[in-house]
Amino acid sequence: MSQEKTIRTTTDVDSLRSEIRDKSVRVIDVRREDDYKQSHIPTAVNLPLANLLSDDSPERVLKLVNSMGISDDTSVVVYDDTFGALASRVAWTLEYLGHSDVSLLETTFSKWKSLGLENDNKTPEVQTTNHSIHLKPEILATSNYLETSKDKPSVILIDNRERLNFLEQHIPGAISLPYRTLATSDKILRPKEDMKRLLDNRGITGNAEIITYCGSVGTLSGLAYYALKSVGLPNVKLYVRSFKEWKNLQKPTEKQQDANYWDLSAE
């Protein structure tokens, strides 16, 4: 059971509800503070993504984790209202710190509410904890790392921005897998078999080293990180500073030439 728990990437609605009842889970709501204060899933603590991003150094993250009452063996479930992208970025950060038992709620808060499930506006009492640090550099890609490894045949670089943005400009060698592709209309990630087939078709399989990136802070590509993990791909890294940093560093980019694809889009 516990082994199964450590590899789950999403937590379904019913499981989370029973874990909340059992008080065996720490739920993190990553929406803005105002939204959180209005209503949230019972017992959830609030960690707005912007707050995390203002300084996501391991030392700071450790403080945040401790203040949310998360111990090394606490089961953590993260949710947002942004199709799982913001939650993914927070979950990934915890994972990077060395907290492995973290997963995403399978759906968004809006959907949770629309199903008529419990919510309240109480801020829970939290006992500060003392989490350890065991950084996992194997899930992080830096620009330097990416530059030296992206041309290796065993590395697959995935751009999770929308297709038009990809056509316009991307990191050379990247393939396009827009973040919308990963979800269904009511779940933040496709069912496993569905996801697996989609990725198989694209040649995203086996023991390849896979690096995901998106536009700026690793949210969309964070979701992709969990999409890839959900089908059991063993070696996935997030280029967390993504295309914004890549461009700022004036590293080479590529574009689809000789076509006015933007004019095909409706405003």
């Binding site: 929308e162 038009l164 056509l167 592709t181 694209r202 095909l264």
Partner: peptide, 21 residues
């Protein structure tokens, strides 16, 4: 999911999705 976030109605009553991998 698979195109450029829009679709194109043609003169022959088709809908086209462009720039699909």
């Amino acid at each position: 999911q698979f195109s450029i976030g829009n679709a194109h109605f043609t003169t022959r009553e088709n809908i086209q999705l462009h720039w699909v991998i």
